[in-house]
Design a protein around this nucleic acid. Structure first.
Length: 183
DNA sequence: GAGGCGATTGGCT
DNA sequence: GCCAATCGCCTCG
């Protein structure tokens, strides 16, 4: 395992999204293995950065290696890692590893498979909200480490969006039981 | 200033 | 499979 520094994020979101599969993500000591990500690029109509800066998305236009957290459907939070030139990686699912009991309470959900399998679910399990928007991901309370060996990654179209649906920018850990949806 | 809709989820049919 | 919950942003007037 090796802790990530800022240079890891100062690259294209697609490369970062692919390499994050199999990495470990902890927030306040709670989290697990990243099993599903999606990349969003600046020239991408599905990206929040596509139509310029607003109060909501300003973190995407800041330095790489920070968090971008936004509210989805007025209810849920979605957690992104900002990469180079206003691109970002959405974390869509984790395999829970550390603090499972805490996550079960926060989610009111005993099934481990359903704790973090979805962008809104993992934010609830890790207690990530707008308060973390803009925070550096390379410092406590965040710890992100990745394995030296490359994970077995599968690729597909992004899901849950209506624009630019044919871009193959969704990445997942092959055969993981903790994906938000099968590839 | 009003209306529509979204990188979602959980519950009910 | 369908639908409500719920709110900030974008578009249009």
């Amino acid at each position: 395992m090796c802790e990530l520094d800022e240079t890891f994020f100062q690259r294209d979101a697609i490369a970062v999204a692919r390499e994050l599969i199999g990495a470990s993500l902890l927030f306040q000591g709670i989290g697990g293995t990243i099993v599903e990500t999606e990349a969003y690029r600046p020239d991408d109509p599905a990206s929040h950065s596509f139509s310029g800066m607003s109060e909501r998305n300003k973190s995407m236009f800041g330095p790489a290696g920070r968090a971008y957290v936004y509210r989805s459907y007025g209810l849920h939070w979605c957690f992104n890692l900002v990469c180079s030139s206003s691109s970002a990686v959405l974390i869509r699912a984790l395999e829970p590893k550390v603090g499972i009991d805490v996550m079960q309470v926060r989610r009111k959900q005993s099934s481990i498979r359903l704790l973090c399998s979805g962008p809104g679910r993992l934010c609830e399990a890790l207690a990530i909200t707008r308060e973390q928007d803009g925070l550096p991901l390379t410092k406590i309370p965040f710890v992100i480490k990745h394995e030296k060996k490359i994970a077995d990654v599968c690729v597909g179209n992004r899901i849950g969006i209506s624009k630019a649906v044919h871009q193959p920018w969704r990445f997942g850990l092959k055969d993981s039981a903790f994906l938000s949806k099968k590839f």
